[in-house]
Nucleic acid binder design. Structure first.
Lengths: 191, 191
DNA sequence: TGGGTATGCGGAGGCTCCTCCGCATCGCCA
DNA sequence: TGGCGATGCGGAGGAGCCTCCGCATACCCA
């Protein structure tokens, strides 16, 4: 369920794998990379790169999909360890870690999120599912609001990242996420 | 206080004005415009354009600065017409209108906000001042929280826009802004 | 195993971005 | 008014993005 099905032809599959490998290495260097260079490093033509990954974001997303899956799965663990309203905030921090790491590895992922290019994509859907998992625990427990949508939370988190990626940084982002949590927690239970 | 001082030499001032005029026209066409074309239309060289406006965002910002100033000044009017916690939400809607209009005129402004490029810039500062004005009214009145920073609110609004610009759209953005308001309103007064 | 065709490959080319630096022009001062 | 230094101009050029299409190859079927 994690991978999409590989291309039909053997050479296509091979080239795709090579491109991913080359891109992983290139992005890890931390500097901005020309796609042409990645294609060259993978030993394929630029056309091949664009056929497999029509946009830069597609390439980045493919590389980090595994890690993103892990991030999303971690929602359940967090729920085991803490009540939903705490788990949600911790999950946001993990998201922050995830993107921050990628940021240090190059601004490819930052661009991915900042540009809002994470649209109906696999990534966005997975993130929404993860948040929904936490909501499903918190709403019956009465600690999280029932009238808040998971995709709105995801969009808010992504937006917080986008708006602070160039300045403000982690500290401002943390305050913004706290603010978001204030909105998402069910009222009337404060003691 | 609104304009920065014009360039010293007469030709520089003239070229700057021409560039702004040409850019206004070009962006109004709604299509993506090459900067070279704008320079050509203004009758100056591309180098001149880049000297006056080092980045595309600088140019866009200069064009829409007037309107943005108007948006920011409207905070006071809104405060006259409604209580601060309502005024703030309305102001967010105005911001939405502002950016949406620009979006229809071309994605230049969208890019400006979506990319987080609205950094320490004039725009961001003005927006923060406007929000601060509303906070200064709402905090003493007890309807808005005292421990929320204006720049965090601005970043959240900008982020909401960035995260919904490619999909989700106005409706999702409205829900997200409502959520933000839930966080910003002072608790304990609900009736 | 061998032939035919759908599928994939590759890179030239057109476009845009942005920089850099020699030349022209402005505006000051006598 | 005329000369000179600071300031601004312009566009060539290098680099990256992305598309497009003729050629090569892998897979299917007999």
């Amino acid at each position: 369920m994690v991978d999409e099905q590989p291309p039909r032809r053997a050479d296509a599959a091979r080239n795709r794998a090579r491109l991913l490998e080359a891109a992983r290495t290139a992005f890890a260097s931390g500097e901005s990379v020309a796609l042409e260079r990645i294609a060259r490093a993978a030993g394929v033509g630029i056309g091949t790169l664009y056929r497999h990954f029509p946009t830069r974001e597609d390439l980045v997303e493919a590389i980090y999909r595994e890690e993103l899956d892990r991030l999303c799965r971690s929602a359940s663990e967090l729920l085991d360890a803490a009540p939903p309203e705490v788990a949600l905030r911790r999950w946001m921090d993990r998201f922050d870690d995830y993107v921050a790491t990628k940021h240090e590895m190059g601004d490819a992922v930052r661009a991915l999120f900042a540009s809002g290019a994470v649209k109906l994509s696999h990534s966005r859907r997975r993130l929404t599912e993860a948040v929904q998992t936490i909501l499903d625990a918190g709403v019956p427990a009465g600690t999280l609001r029932a009238d808040v949508r998971a995709d709105d939370i995801v969009a808010s988190v992504v937006g917080a990242f986008a708006a602070t990626s160039l300045e403000g940084g982690r500290q401002q982002r943390a305050r913004m996420l706290d603010l978001l949590m204030d909105a998402v927690r069910a009222p009337g239970l404060s003691g």
